[in-house]
Computed example of a mutant assay.
Amino acid sequence: MSEVLHAKVTESEKHGISRRSVVAGVAWSLPVIATAIAAPAAAASGYSATAALVGQASNITLVSSSGTGSGTNQTGKGPTGFQINNTGIAMTGVITGTVNIKPSGTVIAGAGIQSIGSATLTAAVPAYTNAFEYNATFTYAGGVTSGQTLTFPLSFQYQRVTPAPSKTTYSYTLTITLRLPDGTDRIMAGIVTVAY
């Protein structure tokens, strides 16, 4: 191609369109075509929505993991819920999410989610690992209209173990990941503590 671009202009090319002009024009137009093809896909993806934990350092009550009303409630600190703020087009379809509550340091009991207002936890039994880490998934099918801020209250639980921890406070890292109907994620992180 460089030979064509650098070739001497012949007498016949002086008064018409040369091969060199055609090749140069094609070379310059390729990036423009590629950019034009990629732009609509990028502009169409993603909702204009944010997600955030609310009431992060609030006093919270944690119920026993064996069910509401059984065991002794414990106190702690953590968020009271999370919000989705939709500043774009209406969201239709299912919003799914994952919750991970991982111990910070050494613990002998876990902390988890008892309920998420307006959403459905997919497992009725809490999922604690041997390392006292909690994992759960949830769904919300109600949609979020344009301009709406939707709040999801959180209720927490602690893992009931024998013997129970005494006179100590455990700390955990909370991560909630939302998957919006367009396949994009919103991630929220905070801290939960339980005082025994």
Rank of each mutant, 00 (worst) to 15 (best):
S66D: 15
G147A: 13
V194S: 09
A7S: 15
T87H: 04
E3W: 00
F82Y: 06
S155N: 15
T177M: 03
P163Q: 08
I60Y: 11
A124I: 13
S118A: 12
T92M: 01
V9E: 15
A90Q: 08
T98F: 03
T175L: 01
F152Y: 12
V32W: 11
S12K: 10
P40Q: 08
A24R: 06
K102V: 14
N86S: 08
A131H: 01
P181I: 06
I187A: 09
L150M: 04
L5V: 00
A27M: 13
G105P: 14
A39L: 15
V99K: 06
G55Y: 08
A41C: 03
A131T: 10
S104A: 13
D185K: 05
V23Y: 04
A123S: 15
D182I: 09
E11W: 12
T87Q: 09
G117D: 13
K77W: 00
S58W: 02
S12Q: 12
K167A: 10
G183I: 06
T106N: 14
F156Y: 15
Q114D: 11
L30Y: 08
P40L: 13
V23S: 04
P79C: 10
A39V: 13
Q148W: 03
L121E: 00
P31I: 09
T72M: 09
F152T: 10
S66L: 15
G112H: 00
A109C: 09
V26R: 01
G147N: 03
A36R: 02
N86K: 11
I17S: 12
F82M: 12
T139D: 03
E3Q: 06
G25R: 03
T151W: 08
V26N: 04
E133N: 02
A195G: 14
A51P: 05
P163T: 07
S115H: 07
A123I: 00
I95C: 01
A27F: 06
A49K: 00
T173L: 11
D185W: 02
N85F: 04
S45G: 13
M188R: 02
V23N: 02
K167C: 08
T177H: 05
I101N: 05
A90R: 05
A195W: 05
V144Y: 09
T151L: 13
A123V: 02
A164L: 11
G117M: 11
A51H: 06
I33T: 10
G25C: 04
